[in-house]
Write a protein that binds this DNA or RNA. Sequence first.
DNA 1: TGTACATCAGTGAACGCGCGTTCACTGATGTAC
DNA 2: TGTACATCAGTGAACGCGCGTTCACTGATGTAC
Lengths: 191, 191
Amino acid sequence: MRKSRSETAETRRRIVEAAAEAFRANGIHATGLADVMAAVGLSHGGFYRHFDSKDQLVAEACEAGTASVLDALAAAAGGCEGEECLRAVVDAYLSPAHRDAPAVGCPLAGMGSELVRGDENTRAAAARSVDTLVTLLAERVGNPEEEANRSWAIFALSAMVGALTLARLIADPVASAALLDEVRQRIVVAR
Amino acid sequence: MRKSRSETAETRRRIVEAAAEAFRANGIHATGLADVMAAVGLSHGGFYRHFDSKDQLVAEACEAGTASVLDALAAAAGGCEGEECLRAVVDAYLSPAHRDAPAVGCPLAGMGSELVRGDENTRAAAARSVDTLVTLLAERVGNPEEEANRSWAIFALSAMVGALTLARLIADPVASAALLDEVRQRIVVAR
DNA sequence: TGTACATCAGTGAACGCGCGTTCACTGATGTAC
DNA sequence: TGTACATCAGTGAACGCGCGTTCACTGATGTAC
């Protein structure tokens, strides 16, 4: 049953991807390893050929989820790099589409309160996710190394993560969309 | 073994309080009913004399946690009601003390991503929590019924919930405190 | 290049454990007369 | 006010179930000669 090295690497990648989706959609604790392995079409016993523990998978899933969100936001900005695309990134993050698709959305919003209680590696990965997203936002308003730009980006990311979480809590679609709209406008103005 | 009505009510209240603390500190899924009952000094079997299900307890714990945070923030404002106390409320919410005491802190930050996946009653309770905190903030900048004040308060609460979550993810105490400071200042300025 | 052997990805059963929930039981409280 | 009985808060064992993790096994892949 042994697989070739490239197949093994591909399987591992698919496990991380499936985990990243399941953790964001259903929560870390509520998602079993058997669920993740089944999503990839494997039995759960083989999990430990790829990972030491569920904690390790959580940390990697956080990284993978962040990378996918980063790609999606960069794509939404259409490849431009200046301030003119700031609105595109913020609009994409605070869209009803993002709110309604947590499985492929921001891990900080989808599993933020569970990441806080993760192990050391998980929290380190989550902290890197914060840094990555802060840099993405800072780039939209100028040099991402400049203190003022990072400072604004930290503020913007906080508001974005919080707004997405709150928007998902509010069942009324009108009120939820209104919350997203208001935060969206104020973030751009706050720059 | 039967208890008097007032004792029964008091026991029920203590279960909700203990649950509110445990859920915020350790997460909803990670906290067992036996843990909660043990914290109150009871065996787990008696739980169902007070509640229909764990879900019901989660919803009530969300409400109770919000009430306690509301009290704490009102106390931080020192009883004054005008705009001059806005800073006191925001400072209290975005303080290292709040960050380091999730058990008695804001439920939206402490268990936000788990509340999103709660049942109907839980999400309704969480949505009421959002509304309650928005009103508290709106009151600090004027008439809480006025659209402009509510709109700002929604933005402020989003930034506050997000910032507290991110601050808890960042292990480095200097970077974490810096994030809180920056968001704190910008929220007040954004008014 | 071909052969012999070591490696190891994946299977499926099993491990101990804790979960939410149920239940028979106890005995103090509440109620009806 | 006092007595007899119904109620029910709390106990502790048990229910079925799913969890993370381990393990003996299979057989294709990788490696050494």
